Every structure is written in structure tokens, then in C-alpha cells.
Lab assay of single mutants.
Amino acid sequence: MPSETPQAEVGPTGCPHRSGPHSAKGSLEKGSPEDKEAKEPLWIRPDAPSRCTWQLGRPASESPHHHTAPAKSPKILPDILKKIGDTPMVRINKIGKKFGLKCELLAKCEFFNAGGSVKDRISLRMIEDAERDGTLKPGDTIIEPTSGNTGIGLALAAAVRGYRCIIVMPEKMSSEKVDVLRALGAEIVRTPTNARFDSPESHVGVAWRLKNEIPNSHILDQYRNASNPLAHYDTTADEILQQCDGKLDMLVASVGTGGTITGIARKLKEKCPGCRIIGVDPEGSILAEPEELNQTEQTTYEVEGIGYDFIPTVLDRTVVDKWFKSNDEEAFTFARMLIAQEGLLCGGSAGSTVAVAVKAAQELQEGQRCVVILPDSVRNYMTKFLSDRWMLQKGFLKEEDLTEKKPWWWHLRVQELGLSAPLTVLPTITCGHTIEILREKGFDQAPVVDEAGVILGMVTLGNMLSSLLAGKVQPSDQVGKVIYKQFKQIRLTDTLGRLSHILEMDHFALVV
């Protein structure tokens, strides 16, 4: 994948999101292997301009796509893939009243899908469409860049269908997702969380590099694949309309690839034109409109599966009536509230959605109805927002919020430890010299600072030695090549209790 991002070429006709291997024109390309080798690009942008032909009021008969309808489940399912879809609609009884809503608040519980998330729908649909058009064949390999849930859905379907599955996901995604993927037989590649989507090191860039190296491999490409919004247009939206008897006044959905909100909203605009569509985008993402909503100094966020630093091709923002931004604290607070007060075992993005819903639905009156999409299960986040310690460490809970008995030293300040200034190293000294210094002084790690004293990161003896043994660096290389740029900081005025929580999850903390 090139470091400079080429513009994806656009073909003359058809839909841009065809499933299957992508040609340089962004659509299915038939021909000899030699032709494909000559024409197939190194990668295709996940934010390529959409060429979708959908228009409100256009006859369904003019759609270029294969459409399906929700099917009634048999008493005995032939395999677990038949437990994807037909998820329950559940009334939220307490939270709406707590925040003064007059309307009825309903939750579409997508964590009841077989793999635990709304992404099971698009995973199965992308595979079925690729099999139907002859792209996927027995023994082929599926590769997908994902925040985890699409990966789980694909790995689940691949396990049943017999495909090899490789999932490329950023490091910030939970260990629970990784464990589930491994249990399903998927191979996992992790990428830096802070890598831009168009960087060769991003999950998108690495996935395309693997595709170019592995024979008979395919990126189904949830960011561009029409099967993504079509899955929701054909099934999720129809289920909502049936469950609500066609009567709903507002739908609120958090947005990642945009397939969920695009597919549902398009069908609702056709069948229930008075329904307002509300999009939820986390602070630090750029999906919301108008652009002024996205202006923030924050560039990272903890909530998973929603928000991006690019506009995915499948996201149709014209069908969203209003956007709201959400933050991590309210997302996790509301997710825990949904679990504790409503018994809905949902993930953090569901918290984002409901946090926005109780604001947006203030305009609705008694007798009206708001539906929220709860995308995934708490299963993926047992060591994250479900953990009091994690919430404390991230600053989303305060010590006084917890009532468990603490040891005698818990409320003492870090400054009472009488710490001395640490050994520091410059980023320009060599790895070999740094190892000598650390061994001589008896230290395992040291902060790396520039000549102005600005902290650049941390270097550890173990990481340097393993990097040297693996051949990633040489003793003569500058130590700046092996620094940890993500590390926890703590102030002298913070409590030892807070430091204790940090050290339970990290090997060190830097006192500043």
C-alpha cells in the first residue's frame, strides 16, 4: 500500500459497493488471473465517493441489488447463522422517566444476534452475496479491517462455511474481542490505534497488504460494500417497522461504517417519512454534520465500534436529520445504567446512543415513540467499562463513588512517597548505550525526554532486548525507535489509591 493515498477510480455505471474482489474501477472485475494482476490496485480507499443510485421515491424494481426479506425461524435451526436477525424490541421503562421523557422509549437489542452484535447481519450478508456472485469459493481466505464486531461476525460465518479468516484490528480494541476471535479460529493482526486510516500501518493498510500477498484472499470491505446497508434496509428496518406496527417518530443510532443508519433510515424514509433520524458520533470522530460539531482538541476516545477519521463510502449522511456528539463518560455511564436499571447487557456504544436519545427525544410528546439501536453486548468489555477499576483509572468514576473498604494508605498523596527525580535518556542515544546505562543503574525503564525536557515516551529494558533479539533494531539504532509513546501519567497530588489502580493494569506510571 502506498504512503500517498491515490484516488480510487470510478467506473461508468453500476453501484460502487459490489461485493467481491475490487477492480481499479471499484466494481467486480472478471477475466484471467493475468488481467486481474495487471488491473487490481494495491488498495482502494474506504472513503471513495459513493456511486449508489438510491433515491427517495425511486421504484424498488430499479435497484441493481439482490434483495432479501426477513424469514421466520424454524423450530430447529440448521446452523447458528440462522440465529442472525429477528432481534427483540424491548421497552426501556426507567431511564426515559428518569430523564423526563414523555414518549415511549424502545430498544432494538442487536446483541441477541448469534455473534453478539449488529455486525453479524452485514457479515453474513457480505459472505452470502460474495458466494452468490462467485467471488468467494471453498478454501478462500477472508481478510477484514475491523474494530472487532464485524470480525467476530465474519469469523463466526467463516467457521460454519469453512473459510480461512484473518482479522486486522487496532490495538485499542478489547482483549475479549481478541479472545472470541481466536476461539472462532480467526487469525488476528493488531495495528497502532493512532495510525491514520490511509497510513500503511493502519488496520485498513495492513489488511490490503495481506490481501496482495495471500492468494485467493478477499477483503469484503464493510466500508464500501453495498451488502452492509442492504442488510439493514432489507431486514433490520423491516423488523423495526413490523415490531412497531409502522408507528415510530424517531430513530437514534450510533454511527461507525454508517451501514446501520443508512440502511434503516432509507427504508424508514420510504415507509415512515415523518420519522426523524438521529445520528450519534463520538467526540474525536469526524462523521457528524455540520462540520463545526467535529471541532475539538480530542483525537482519541475509548468507546469502541463507532466514529472514524474518514467518511466511509457506505455512509449516506443525507438521510440523517440531526447529529449529536457523545463523550466517553456519558457513554459508559449510560451503558452501566442500562445494565443495572433495565437488565440490558449492552456495550458502550449503546450507552452513547441512549445518552443522546434522552436529549433528542425531549421534543417528542406522549403517545409518540423513539427507537434506539443497541449494537453489541457487554461480553466484549468485561475488563473495560464493566470494571470499576478501569473506570477509575480512566477518570470516568471517582473514588467516592465506590463504597468498598480501602487499605490505610489509600488516600495518601503520591508526594508522600518522597520520590527522587528519575533517570532520563535522550532519544538520540543508541539502544546499546541505553541498555548499558539501565543495567549500570539497576533500572528496568526510563523516560525519554528531548533537550527541552519534554517527555516523549518510555523505554524499557525488556522491550529493547526483545527488539534486538527479533532483529527489529540494532544496538547502533537510536533509542527513539523503541519508545512507548502511550503511558499513564500521575500527579504528586493524586492518591496512592489512584496509582494502585493504574499499576494493576500497566507496568509503570510516570509522575509529573
Rank of each mutant, 00 (worst) to 15 (best):
V10H: 02
G11D: 04
G14A: 03
R18E: 11
R18S: 12
R18H: 15
P21F: 03
S27A: 12
K30Y: 10
E37A: 06
E40Y: 09
L42D: 09
I44Y: 11
A48C: 13
P49Q: 10
R51W: 06
T53C: 05
Q55N: 15
L56W: 09
S63H: 08
S63F: 15
H65D: 04
P70Q: 10
P70W: 11
A71D: 11
A71N: 12
L81T: 09
D86R: 10
D86W: 08
M89R: 06
M89F: 08
R91W: 01
I92A: 03
I95G: 00
G96C: 13
L101M: 05
L105K: 02
A107Q: 06
K108I: 00
C109L: 04
C109S: 06
A114C: 04
R125C: 08
A130N: 05
G139P: 06
D140M: 06
T141W: 09
T141L: 14
I143Y: 06
I143G: 03
E144C: 06
T146R: 06
N149C: 00
G151T: 01
I152Q: 00
G153N: 04
G153H: 03
A155S: 13
A155I: 03
A158Y: 01
A159M: 06
R161G: 14
R161W: 07
I166G: 03
I167Q: 07
V168I: 07
M169C: 03
E171H: 06
K172I: 01
M173D: 06
S174A: 06
S174G: 04
V180Y: 02
V180D: 02
V180K: 01
L181N: 00
I188Q: 04
V189H: 07
V189K: 07
T193R: 08
A195W: 05
R196T: 10
D198Y: 05
E201D: 10
S202K: 07
H203W: 05
V204D: 07
A207T: 07
L210C: 06
K211C: 05
K211D: 04
N216F: 06
S217C: 05
D221C: 06
D221K: 04
N225Q: 03
N228V: 00
P229Y: 05
A231H: 11
A231W: 02
D238K: 10
D249I: 00
V252T: 10
A253Q: 09
A253K: 05
I261P: 00
I264S: 02
R266M: 06
K267R: 08
